[in-house]
Design a protein around this nucleic acid. Structure first.
Lengths: 200, 200
DNA sequence: TTGATTGTGTACTGATTGGTACGTATATTA
DNA sequence: TAATATACGTACCAATCAGTACACAATCAA
């Protein structure tokens, strides 16, 4: 009954909340439709449960590694690289479930609770990155003037972009190259981060 | 009859191919459902027509400006900034229709022709960026060793990420900050672009 | 061996999906 | 004015949607 989530998750992951039919979810779980309803109540609650499962199964370890790495830049770099590896893992649907769900955020058929949970999860990820940047700043690996908020928003944006590219079928190596390119913005010389509006 | 597309487009833009029902599209266009079918054949053809309309209405001028700007870095910077302004324009649904559609690429209900058209449009945009980078390289604004392919993939990824963030409701100013952050990777010193794998 | 509880599948509900048959009204041509 | 062609809306089609009523089977306590 709990392992049903592990079979339901990839269907939501691939087709999204609206795209996945309850019949399809029940078939994937190997149970009948009423059994799913008996266990989870409705489609919305089932999705929220799958989302929690996704976070603990496919995001938690990356976040742990983010703090385990001693050097700030290396931590972010490794976080991006491992994200790409997850996004392009042929064992799962490609890309990130959260990003996938967020792009359907404007649809009226998406329940408010789902919308809220998706946004909360995405914000939590962004916060984790910013916390790591703040630590790097405290430890002198980042200039004191660096705008960690803007940098966190930047890395979060790159992550979302990588997810989209992976969904579109981009090769893993290509995306790893994008990660290396994305890391080139890390401020090495003091004062670099002060340039918020570069001359155009 | 042609102006119907202008009313259909935002519905597809907001709800996606699967999310938008033909009834909803007909209501938006101010005609009956059979009239839509008489004019366009089926939902798939209607979406493809809306996609063409989107490209010429919301992408073409940005691409023109990309070539009009003399300096390469300024051209890319302006392209990103104007994209953010378009993505967060309250007059339209937020984000980019192409990115929005691409995230539903794995769904089985998406017709192959739609999938192909979305990927082709996205690839065309990436090519435009790479062509602009190559020109900048020819004109000496970019080191000869710079990997323009990787850079184009990078900017394309950032664009996709910005679209996702806009869809999630991020403020325009925040995204403009992300653009400035993203531009900090532009190689200024010769040899910078050679570092494809930075020490981690 | 009872009686009650739990879990599951069959078969349904009303609503909505993409798509269409057909009658009607307008416009055009002669 | 009469005949034809085009355009459009009403009303429908089968299929599928999320969700449920209910009967049956298995398990449990006594």
């Amino acid at each position: 009954m709990d392992s049903a989530l592990d079979h339901v998750l990839p269907v939501f992951w691939r087709d999204g909340f609206d795209g996945a039919s309850v019949q399809e979810l029940a078939d994937a779980a190997g149970v009948s439709k009423p059994s799913l309803y008996a266990a989870y109540g409705n489609k919305e609650a089932l999705y929220l449960a799958a989302l929690r499962r996704y976070a603990e199964l496919h995001m938690a370890d990356r976040v742990v590694a983010l703090d385990a790495e001693a050097d700030g830049r290396a931590a972010i770099h490794r976080f991006l690289r491992s994200s790409v590896e997850a996004y392009t893992d042929p064992a799962h649907p490609s890309g990130c479930l959260i990003v996938m769900g967020t792009t359907a955020c404007e649809s009226a058929t998406l329940p408010d609770a789902v919308r809220a949970a998706l946004c909360a999860t995405m914000r939590a990820a962004a916060d984790q990155i910013e916390q790591r940047l703040l630590r790097a700043q405290r430890e002198g690996q980042l200039p004191g003037a660096a705008d960690t908020g803007a940098m966190a928003a930047y890395y979060n944006t790159v992550l979302a972009g990588l997810s989209v590219q992976a969904k579109a079928g981009a090769a893993r190596d290509k995306l790893l190259g994008v990660v290396d390119e994305a890391m080139r913005n890390w401020p090495t010389r003091a004062g670099d981060a002060l340039i918020t509006h570069s001359p155009s």
